[in-house]
Amino acid sequence: MSKIKIFSKGILKENAVFVMLLGLCPVLGTTTSAINGLGMGVATLFVLLLSNITISLIKNIVPDMVRIPVFIVVIASLVTVLQLLMQAYTPGLYATLGLFIPLIVVNCMILGRAEAFASKNSLVDSILDALGMGLGFTLALTILGAVREVLGSGSVFDFKFMDGDGMLVFVLAPGGFLGLGFIIAILNWIKRNKEAKAKLQAVEINTKKK
C-alpha cells in the first residue's frame, strides 16, 4: 500500500464514523455544535496519534498474550495526560465535553487501530494511519455537529445566521441519531450513484469496442 493511500483511506473510504461505525458514543454525545464536535475530534486525534506511535515503537517487546492489557494501559495513560492538559489549558472545553473525555479510553476506534494496524506496521505508516483515521473522525464529528447546530440552533460555529431557536430536537438526543442516519443515507446514495455510473461507462466502453 502506498503512503498516500495509508493516510487517505481513513478520511473517506474507511471513515471510522460513516463507514465503520466505530466510536459512536462520542460522535452522538458531543456533537451538539460544530465547535464541540471539532474539539472532541482533535482530542481523539491526539490520543490516537500518540497511541499509534507508542504501540508501533513497543510492538516487539510486547508478547502476544498480554498485548490487549498493554494497549489499554498505554491508551488510558495517554487519556489521563490529555485530561490533565485540557484542565490546565482549555478548561471551558473540558467542562463542555465532560464525561466523554475519559471515555476516549473505550473508543473502539483507538484500540482497533492499535490492534489492527500499529502493532503490525512501521512507525511512519502508523503515524500516517493515525493522522488519516483521526482526521476522518474529526471531519465526521465536525460535519455532524455543524448539521445539528444549523438545524437545531440556527447557527454554525456559534455564528448566528437565523433568528429564533431552530428545530430544538436536533440539538437534543434524538437529533444525534436522526442526523447521523441521514448523513450515512446520503453518503450511501452518492456511492451507489457513482457505482451505477461506473458500471454504465464500463458497459458503454464494451459496446463501443464491439
Partner: peptide, 17 residues
C-alpha cells in the same frame, strides 16, 4: 524478533510498561 509469550516475558513486559 518479537518476544515469546512466556510467563517471565509477559510479566516483565506488562510490569515494565
Amino acid at each position: 524478533a518479537k518476544l515469546e509469550s512466556t510467563l517471565t516475558n509477559m510479566l516483565l513486559s506488562l510490569g515494565g510498561i
